[in-house]
Amino acid sequence: MLFGCFSKFKYFGSVGCETKMLSMQRFDFKLFKITAKLTLPALAITSILGITLPSNAISNPFRRNQNDYRVCAARLLSVGIPAETAGNACAAALRPKEVSSCVGQIQRRSQIPATDSLPFCGQARRPNDLATCVVGIGTRSAETVNPAILSYCNRSLLPVKFAQCVVGLRSEIDFSPTQAMENCISASDRISNVVPLSNPAVPAVPPVPPSEGFSPTFETTPMR
């Protein structure tokens, strides 16, 4: 456009060219104002929504992989738990995903049926620790896995430590699994039942009697 303006300079003169350039600048400025009016409200709304919406609003708790109860039910059904039993167990659990994970780990790695481990996983304060305890003891035993491991691990306040105790004793001492578990659970029971000793009583100090032959007297002078 500017080249055309200069090429026609000899026909229209400098005044006409300057007028045309000014009109073009005014048109560009008006176009910029219209574009700004259209885009600024959209940008403002987007920024407000980004500030006011909480971070958890982006994630949907009802999605398949984010609903713990749905994950729990699906896992329990996959390991052969009846539908009604799975529904009751997942609904009553504080950590439904961990309960189902506990059942699945025990069945896969220790060959204990899921129906046997589900009640213990549902009662455990830390279902994952219970599974670690059962699997740790069961996989290091040459004999058939004893279902009593579930009861011992569930009784222990620190199931992972309990499993370490059982495995450690059997590694160096010729203990049966039941004997090692009984020794470790008895030791943990004694530790948990320790009652702190009361402070010893401090004997009272008897008063010191006044020595014989000494009777202090105080002279008083009457006031006049």
Rank of each mutant, 00 (worst) to 15 (best):
residue 2 L to P: 07
residue 8 K to Q: 07
residue 10 K to F: 14
residue 10 K to V: 01
residue 13 G to I: 02
residue 15 V to N: 03
residue 18 E to S: 09
residue 18 E to T: 05
residue 19 T to C: 13
residue 20 K to F: 01
residue 21 M to W: 14
residue 26 R to L: 06
residue 27 F to I: 03
residue 28 D to T: 05
residue 32 F to D: 06
residue 34 I to Y: 07
residue 35 T to E: 03
residue 38 L to V: 03
residue 41 P to M: 01
residue 41 P to T: 02
residue 43 L to E: 08
residue 44 A to K: 10
residue 52 T to R: 08
residue 60 N to F: 09
residue 61 P to H: 09
residue 65 N to P: 04
residue 67 N to I: 02
residue 76 L to C: 05
residue 78 S to R: 15
residue 90 C to N: 06
residue 93 A to G: 00
residue 98 E to R: 05
residue 104 G to C: 04
residue 113 P to R: 12
residue 117 S to Q: 09
residue 118 L to K: 04
residue 118 L to T: 05
residue 121 C to A: 10
residue 123 Q to R: 10
residue 134 V to P: 05
residue 135 V to N: 03
residue 138 G to T: 03
residue 141 S to K: 00
residue 141 S to E: 08
residue 146 N to R: 14
residue 149 I to F: 15
residue 151 S to N: 15
residue 153 C to F: 12
residue 153 C to R: 13
residue 154 N to Q: 15
residue 157 L to V: 09
residue 160 V to N: 06
residue 161 K to W: 09
residue 162 F to R: 02
residue 165 C to I: 10
residue 166 V to H: 04
residue 170 R to E: 08
residue 175 F to G: 01
residue 175 F to D: 07
residue 176 S to C: 07
residue 178 T to L: 07
residue 181 M to H: 00
residue 182 E to M: 01
residue 186 S to D: 13
residue 186 S to C: 09
residue 188 S to M: 11
residue 192 S to A: 15
residue 192 S to V: 03
residue 196 P to T: 13
residue 198 S to G: 09
residue 199 N to G: 03
residue 203 P to C: 00
residue 204 A to Y: 03
residue 206 P to M: 03
residue 211 S to A: 14
residue 211 S to V: 04
residue 212 E to L: 00
residue 213 G to Q: 05
residue 220 T to R: 14
